[in-house]
Every structure is written in C-alpha cells, then in structure tokens.
Design a protein around this nucleic acid. Structure first.
Length: 270
DNA sequence: ATAATAACCTGAGGGC
DNA sequence: TGCCCTCAGGTTATTA
C-alpha cells in the first residue's frame, strides 16, 4: 500500500499527536509481522517521544533510550484514535499516550514491521544499505547516471531498488517514467545523461505532488486522521492499462515487469 | 557479483 | 453461495 508519499503523510499526521507526549502503554496484540515485533519495544513505556522521522518508507520513532523502526509493508496504516476506541481486526499494536490518544498500527497482510533498537537506527541492517532520499540533493542526475551505467536491468526495476534510491515503489516508478517519457522496459545502461536528469526531476516532482495531495488512496490507504489521499486523480498511467493516454490518446500498454504490473504508453515513452 | 524467484500474509474480485 | 484462481501499494532471503 504505502510508498514514500503515504508514509510521509502518515508521519505528518501522527507527529503532532505523538511528539513530546509520554507513552503510557504499548500493547502488542499480534507480534507475527514480517519479523516478530521486538518485545523490548515496550521499553517505550514511561518515555517521552522526542521526534518522528522518515527514512525511505521506514518511520523512526525516537525516544531517550532507543528508537522504534516501523514499516507499513503492503497493507499497513496508522491511525490516531481515542484510547477507549475498540480494537479492529488486524489492529496489531497500540501505542497509548498520556493524552489518551492511541496510535493504532493496522496491517491485514502483516508485511509490516515494528522493531526496537538502542543503536543509531540509520545503522540498522534494514536501513544501512538504503540509497539516498529521493527528495534530497544527494539524489541528482550525476548520481543516477552513475547508477544506470553498465546496469543490465530494466530502468523501472532499477529505480524501485531501495539500495539505488529509497522509497520509490510501483505506483510512482510508473508515474515518473511516464513524466520522463522513458519506456519502463528500457535497459538502464542505455539511459543517457539527459534521460537521467529528466528521470530524477520526474521522480522528485511526482513524489512532491503526491505528498501535497496526502498520498494515493487506491483501496485502503487512509491518513492518520482517517481521510484518504487525493493523488489517485493525478495518476497518469498506474491502474489505467487499456485506457487512452492523456497525452496522445493511444491505448496504454499493460505488461508484467519483474512480477510487477506495469502500465506505460509505447508512443510517449521510448 | 548481479539478477531473477520465492517467500512472508490476508482479502477482494472474477469465473465457474 | 462457494470454491479456486489471480492479484495487490514491499522487501528480504534464497537460488541461479
């Protein structure tokens, strides 16, 4: 479900309710996520939350003695509710605050994760190898040009590789390639420096616009306030296979690339 | 070393 | 209704 814009939307939604709040309780109802929830995440009890950061699609909840690392997987979302709100099916974790707000981690498919570390979370094995943040200056045309150089993979596969750039998933990879007029099947090594520049620009643009719209709600993504994101209306290709391209009116192609559904316009994207 | 694939789960939707 | 199949916004571990 959530790519970088949805995770950032969640971060912005929960941060005002969590930061500087004391944690009254941590309730783990279902520990069997992508990895077992680290039992010591209950160390948060009694501590004050210092800040909530994002790295790629990971949320980092910092407290004095450690940091909770949270990933929403494919189907996860976070909501802030009053702590007396009944649990729903697949509400796996609750972080209950002194304010009586409760952060609920809901994740039907359980591909998400909640880990606790007392080290620098950025050095955690899951985060240490992540590529640059797509919206940072480190992600620029020169960098991508270096990455595509000599790669035999398709360009879409490459930009979805978190070690190349963090947080670009299936929706925004497709959208960015359309904006950059690049065929997703193109071998990365055949992208020239101009293509790299356009693609970097397109990725930044589409992510920024999606964050502005509160993310993309396809079926079940909701912000922490329970409201959907509105970027779906702006999608140019994702989910539009068989429909006319908004630019040239030709029928959009739909193929499978690396076991992922991929939509593109074979006229506009070369 | 690089790249494809199998795996972790539930739920929705389509075909029969 | 229900059974079986396929597919879904992600990422690691395993295999080739």
């Amino acid at each position: 479900m959530p790519e970088l814009p949805e995770v950032e939307t969640s971060r912005r939604g929960i941060a005002p309710k969590l930061v500087n709040q004391q944690v009254r309780d941590v309730i783990i109802r279902q520990p069997a996520l992508r990895w077992p929830i680290t039992p010591s995440v209950t160390d948060l009890r009694g501590q004050t939350i210092d800040s909530i950061q994002r790295r790629g699609k990971y949320l980092l909840i910092y407290a004095a003695t450690g940091c909770a690392i949270l990933h929403l997987g494919m189907s996860g979302h976070l909501r802030i509710v009053s702590s007396d709100t009944p649990f729903k099916k697949h509400d796996h974790v609750a972080i209950v605050l002194a304010s009586n707000d409760s952060l609920r981690f809901h994740d039907p498919r359980r591909f998400g994760a909640l880990l606790w570390t007392t080290d620098d979370p950025l050095c955690h094995p899951l985060l240490a190898r992540l590529g640059p943040e797509p919206l940072s200056r480190a992600f620029n045309a020169d960098y991508l040009w270096q990455q595509v150089n000599h790669s035999r993979r398709t360009i879409k596969t490459l930009i979805m590789d978190g070690t190349v750039v963090a947080g670009v998933g299936n929706i925004y990879a497709a959208e960015a390639l359309f904006l950059a007029s690049i065929d997703p099947r193109k071998t990365a090594g055949n992208i020239d420096s101009d293509g790299s520049r356009k693609l970097v620009q397109a990725i930044k643009h589409v992510l920024k616009q999606a964050i502005k719209a509160g993310g993309t709600t396809l079926k079940d993504f909701l912000g922490s306030d329970g409201k959907p994101g509105y970027f779906k209306q702006s999608l140019q290709v994702y989910g539009r296979g068989g429909n006319p391209c908004f630019q040239c009116r030709n029928t959009l192609n739909e193929i499978r690339l690396n076991q992922r559904n991929t939509v593109f316009c074979s006229y506009c994207q070369r």
